[in-house]
Design a protein around this nucleic acid. Sequence first.
DNA 1: AAGTGGTCTAGACCACAAT
DNA 2: TTGTGGTCTAGACCACTTA
Lengths: 237, 237
Amino acid sequence: MITAPGASEKNAVGWRSVRDEALRRIGSGEWKPGDTIPHEAALAQTLGCSRSTVNRAMRALADAGLVRRKRKAGTRVVEHPERRAQMRVPLIREEIEAGGATYRYAVREVGDGPAPAEEVSRFKGAQRLRFVSALHFANETPFVLEDRWINLDATPGAAEEDFAAVSANEWLVRNAPFTGGEIAVGVAAAQEPRASELRVAAGSPLLIVARETWAGDAVVTRARLFYPPSYQMRAPL
Amino acid sequence: MITAPGASEKNAVGWRSVRDEALRRIGSGEWKPGDTIPHEAALAQTLGCSRSTVNRAMRALADAGLVRRKRKAGTRVVEHPERRAQMRVPLIREEIEAGGATYRYAVREVGDGPAPAEEVSRFKGAQRLRFVSALHFANETPFVLEDRWINLDATPGAAEEDFAAVSANEWLVRNAPFTGGEIAVGVAAAQEPRASELRVAAGSPLLIVARETWAGDAVVTRARLFYPPSYQMRAPL
DNA sequence: AAGTGGTCTAGACCACAAT
DNA sequence: TTGTGGTCTAGACCACTTA
């Protein structure tokens, strides 16, 4: 007899149910860390579905880091699943507006003056760099101070922008596609004039987020975001 | 004529090549943000592969957040791809040893005394809570100070552990599977006695990572990690 | 009502790695 | 050499959404 999917038989075997069954066996200790679990064909027969479906389910578990799969060696339950936290990196304006606050943006400084040697080297010899410093406000309270260097050679149209109306943060997202980047989170004591701009006492702890994005080989932009002590970044684990 | 895979024809059409072709069309502007792209069957015919292969490729792009797919409505190129950063959350010992340093662990305090009201409420009424405070050293330099509350009711065996030899961080990873959690990153000025323990001046900025993990409905553990100003968290973007 | 993605299937061949 | 996962295919039915 052929079981019509979603028909009289209630227990449809979709790849999710196969995944969940595997999760249950791992959670219950039936499959222990380090164990090699039955191969796809065997599971397919046991669970009454095709190997493709088992494959899809096990791939999902492998993507989640719970099992490791190798041809010929089989599928093993990972000993210590690595924990990962995925942080969303939204536009600053959207982050503020998502909190129900009114957004305002103010440029502090824009210039094409000579860049510090350290920046030049980080940009791997790019010739034209523009510096933009700006403040983002939530309900007229300083939310974050943004210092940014932009590689004008790598971002067509940037040279014609003064970033007065649209923040560099936003302009770049819309106009400078990137292929990769890095984000680093650290901390430092607030120094003048940044402390005053953020309306915190000098010496207050600041959360600093440094971002670098690149398109292919070229470094597109490097930014440092200074958040007052009240700020928190959150991510699901 | 049937093209044998991997045979004379060099341009095998795997799902990766379909994905890359789609990426190329998006990158080149052939498919603009907001556009609806051809449906799977059309792409399959155009590219000379089966719909399943196109489906696999487009699903990968959807997972990456570059397109959004809806039945009947079709597949659209996303206007502003959301940026995400995936942080690894390793064991503290492994993070230190990965840096080539020698790891040492020292308990500061362990106790089952009554927990602050705030903690009790966060644990949603769990009865037995244990507090553990400890220091993790890298080459005998304080690396991070860990304050942690553990729900003894949710973690079998924890009641018999004093966490003197193995850190709570490590013991929990090995013995308390969890199904979800949250991580929050913030900053604060160091206060005594934590400042002295971390060998920094009182008032120094500290990076604070608060983690909470749960298994099903129960909150398993809540930890606050205090890092000295020299610490940086990094993640690819 | 109809179009599009979501998924399952049975079969097939291949790539890789362990033996 | 051989066992296992990786992937492709052609076809099919379903679920969801829009029209």
